[in-house]
């Protein structure tokens, strides 16, 4: 009866973890239960076939273990020429003991909902299964929290792997400033902000760090050589960074309007039918957009350039023709 695949993978983990030095492919095929050793007295043709079938099976198994997070190392040995061997260092492969409570395990269940139906969904489920071995057993914990699925693309998942593997990648990107084109990037870090995914990395063509919004990547993300040499200690967050340069705008608000601005700002008196508020801001565009959206319920008193931006946008809007 053939050995089940999960059993074969378990035997492979045990074999590669317990070897003192390494196991070569031949040793793996001949000694690990689940692979077919070469038949005795087989013809050349049969040997070739058996070898090809073992190669396919082992390559697939090795990839699945690596995808699972098991660090299967390649060990070259100058004494044995170009024959490659493999090993797993048990301390590196093991899940650290986390001692999770039943409530903590329940929260992880909600976290998997966040990716449900998206590309990281099965990864999240598998991660929770791994962590369940570190969790106390208790009655099911119901929490009044939930997460609705986020948008995650294949590109995001591939980039996560590329960052971990220090693998440079190439993709089609539609940029705000320079149009659509092919980018070759050394990915350093994935970033999530309010549910939107970004990747920060070194753009090889522009020879500078760049931030890419994953949603704007079209088509597949493909690996390209050579590997990423260096990842900076401090990842430059670029436009994603919170601006340290905070300024103050004075806005005038109609009574009963601009509640969000009122909550953020501090009262600065009245002017005729208007309430005055001082509001701190890092990005002028954001204040301008907020005042515009109030459609006459607010105006900017100072600084003048923000007031001009508001008037300019409204003037431009009047020029949009009825389609």
């Amino acid at each position: 009866m053939p050995v089940e695949k999960s059993q074969r993978l378990l035997n492979l983990i045990i074999g590669l973890s317990s070897t003192r030095h390494r196991l070569t492919r031949d040793q793996i095929r001949d000694t690990i239960e689940g692979y077919e050793p070469l038949p005795h007295g087989a013809s050349e043709e049969e040997v070739r076939k058996a070898e090809a079938s073992f190669e396919r099976m082992f390559e697939r198994d090795k990839k699945e273990l690596r995808d699972l997070g098991v660090p299967v190392e390649t060990v070259e040995d100058p004494v044995h020429g170009d024959e490659i061997g493999y090993r797993i260092r048990p301390a590196e492969a093991a899940m650290p003991a986390l001692d999770l409570t039943a409530a903590e395990l329940a929260v992880l269940g909600i976290a998997t909902d966040y990716w449900r139906g998206a590309v990281l969904g099965s990864d999240a489920t598998q991660a929770v299964m791994k962590l369940a071995s570190s969790a106390e057993h208790g009655p099911r914990v119901e929490l009044p929290f939930a997460a609705l699925p986020a948008v995650a693309t294949d590109a995001f998942a591939t980039l996560v792997e590329a960052v971990a593997d220090r693998q440079a990648v190439r993709f089609e990107y539609s940029s705000v400033s320079s149009g659509a084109g092919t980018r070759t990037v050394e990915p350093w870090r994935v970033v999530l902000r309010a549910g939107v995914a970004y990747v920060i990395g070194f753009d090889r063509d522009r020879e500078a760090p760049r931030t890419f919004r994953v949603q704007r990547i079209g088509g597949p993300v493909t690996p390209v050589g050579p590997a990423v040499e260096e990842v900076p200690e401090e990842i430059p967050l670029g436009a994603l960074a919170a601006s340290a340069d905070v300024r103050t705008a004075r806005v005038a608000l109609r009574p009963e309007s601009g509640h969000a601005l009122r909550r953020r700002g501090s009262a600065a008196g009245v002017d005729g039918g208007w309430d005055l508020y001082d509001v701190e801001y890092a990005h002028g565009d954001a204040v301008v957009a907020e005042v515009l959206a109030l459609a006459g319920g607010a105006r900017i008193v100072a600084p003048a350039e923000l007031a001009q931006s508001v008037a300019k946008a409204a003037t431009a809007a009047l020029e949009v023709e009825r389609g």
Partner: peptide
């Protein structure tokens, strides 16, 4: 038990941090 893969780690930490 084996440790989390990079994708698994991003999935959990990303979702929890976003929440």
């Amino acid at each position: 038990q084996v440790r989390l893969s990079p994708r698994e780690a991003v999935a959990l930490v990303g979702a929890l941090s976003t929440m």
